[in-house]
């Protein structure tokens, strides 16, 4: 491949541009003239021509239909539009598309129904035993006071226990299985009782 190594000619780098009709006037004559004298550059020119022909052998592929179909319609912009979360610059474009595209209007209606349905979900009250209001009312000062009271209570209980330790105490065991069964039974009959961790209710209002 002698032509591929025609490094001695500074004209070499212009040959692809010559092939593509991308040379300026002065360069064009220079290259044309040089090709008349330099067999190495003629060979290189032929190689480049073959490379370009090889590239042009590549067939123009069809893009998958779904891809272009999807590209012609709005996607995440629709939810953002419903929630008033579009950027100002995007609004005219989205609105403009919605005026001409029935499919996107249908999608918008469906998304809106879903949004309304989600927002209509009733507010869930925390189970009674959590007494959320009481927890919320408790201040750090009160907690410290309670802690002190609890500590005193524990100390008293220890003294009491030690005092009666000499008497035989019937052995008490906790049956974990029955405890779990009772818990499950309660969960299945009591509305609002959940074994799942209870999260703070969100700001959703029906």
């Amino acid at each position: 491949m002698a032509g591929m190594n025609a490094g001695s000619c500074d004209i070499g780098v212009l040959l692809s541009a010559y092939l593509d009709g991308e040379l300026r006037a002065g360069e064009l004559e220079r290259v044309a003239e040089h090709l008349g004298d330099c067999p190495d550059c003629v060979l290189e020119f032929r190689m480049l021509k073959e490379a370009r022909a090889a590239m042009r052998l590549l067939p123009l592929l069809e893009a998958p239909e779904w891809l272009l179909d999807e590209a012609l319609h709005l996607g995440p912009e629709l939810s953002a539009y419903l929630d008033g979360e579009l950027m100002t610059a995007e609004i005219p474009d989205v609105v403009g598309h919605l005026t001409v595209c029935a499919r996107c209007r249908d999608d918008l209606l469906e998304l809106d129904s879903a949004r309304v349905a989600i927002r209509a979900l009733p507010r869930v009250e925390p189970p009674e035993f959590l007494d959320v209001a009481r927890v919320a009312r408790s201040s750090p000062t009160r907690s410290r006071w309670r802690l002190a009271t609890a500590a005193a209570g524990i100390a008293a209980a220890v003294v009491l226990t030690l005092g009666v330790a000499t008497r035989p105490v019937p052995e008490q065991t906790v049956d974990l299985n029955s405890f779990a069964d009772r818990h499950v039974a309660r969960a299945s009959v009591e509305a609002g009782f959940s074994m799942l961790p209870v999260l703070a209710p969100g700001p959703v209002t029906p």
Binding site: M4, V13, L15, S16, M47, L48, E50, A51, R52, L57
Partner: peptide, 20 residues
């Protein structure tokens, strides 16, 4: 760009052994 197209085609042609 001119140089990259040129060098790219040269390399490409060097990798193809069949006549085009």
């Amino acid at each position: 760009v001119r140089s990259r197209i040129h060098r790219g085609r040269k390399l490409l042609r060097g990798m193809l052994t069949w006549p085009v």
